[in-house]
């Protein structure tokens, strides 16, 4: 890693320390003075006020000028830190993040798509942010970066992971019922490992392919595989289950079969399981084979 490169974390954290430090001193000063006055001048000890002073111009000047200097210092320091978040290093690796209700997908220059953001350690990454529907927020707390994902607008964020590891990536702008489930991770791996991963195509094994498709299209943000209650019904044991669905406002009971699963992926709001909101987006871009792979995988989730 380039030793001259300042990470986003290194740019922001000193500003936090400076503002928190000054604030703590001010807060302790105000509190100690208040408590001190209250004890010293309480009525049982000071039955009569010993001053009728109603102001002092010099004091006012002091406590206008001193805080002004302090806050201007904070402003300037905060601004210079922010500039580091905006100046993307020239050699940054471009990735496109696509946000939709309620999943992330990351596309690399060679066309590879992943539900997790794989990045090489030590190399700056610039993420171009695209929204398919409403506002979302791209937020990685570990790197102190956040940027709203606005439909029709070209926003970006950059960061560099200096250590390998898995870092949380959240959606920070409220986007509806699956907002808190719209989370994934940044996987920072050594450069060589990253290059190998990037070259490798999508998984070949059928079972893994089905799961990878569900991950890629964000299905698992709302439908769990292990029975956990999420925004939509869990896939665990869903095949063959008898469920009550609402079809155009009327209730009917059906058995979940291949045809039902297929229809639910392509036209999700045709039959909505009772108790759930009709909020799932449709996926018309899927090929027949992809749908078949997904349906077969879901059948197998027990």
């Amino acid at each position: 890693m380039n030793p001259l490169l300042i990470t986003t974390t290194q740019a922001v954290d000193p500003v936090f320390k400076f503002i928190f430090g000054v604030s703590l001193v001010l807060l302790l000063g105000i509190t100690a003075t208040t408590v001190g006055f209250v004890i010293r001048y309480r009525r049982s000890r000071a039955p009569e006020p010993t001053s009728q002073s109603s102001g002092n111009i010099w004091l006012e000047i002091v406590w206008i000028v001193l805080p002004s200097i302090l806050v201007l210092a904070m402003f300037y320091y905060g601004w210079s830190g922010y500039l580091s978040l905006r100046n993307v290093p020239k050699d940054a690796l471009p990735v496109t993040a696509t946000a939709r209700m309620w999943s992330w997908s990351f596309t690399y220059a060679n066309g590879k798509t992943s539900p997790r953001l794989y990045v090489p350690v030590g190399k700056p990454v610039v993420v171009n942010l695209v929204s398919k529907d409403v506002l979302h927020g791209f937020y990685i707390p570990a790197f102190r970066v956040k940027r709203d994902v606005v439909p029709g607008m070209k926003n970006f964020a950059w960061f560099v992971a200096s250590k390998p590891g898995s870092y949380d990536l959240f959606c920070s702008v409220y986007c509806g019922v699956g907002h808190s489930a719209m989370i994934t991770t940044v996987e920072a791996v050594p450069a060589a490992e990253f290059a190998a991963w990037l070259e490798k195509g999508e998984g070949k094994e059928e079972k893994a392919a089905g799961k990878a498709l569900l991950e890629k299209h964000g299905c698992l943000g709302c439908h769990s595989l292990d029975g956990t209650a999420k925004v939509g019904p869990t896939f665990k044991g869903i095949f063959g289950r008898r469920v009550t669905v609402l079809t155009g406002g009327t209730e009917r009971t059906i058995t979940v079969d291949e045809e039902y699963l297929r229809r639910s992926i392509l036209d999700p709001n045709a039959d909505v399981v009772k108790g759930y909101q009709p909020i799932m987006p449709s996926f018309p871009g899927l090929t027949k084979d992809e749908v078949t792979t997904m349906v077969e995988f879901i059948e197998g989730v027990r």
Binding site: I19, G78, V145, K146
Partner: peptide
Amino acid sequence: IGGLTGLILGAAATDIHVHD
């Protein structure tokens, strides 16, 4: 306390981390 934590939100660099 509310006002002083507001300074964190007013400074551009630190606001980015704690916004939302």
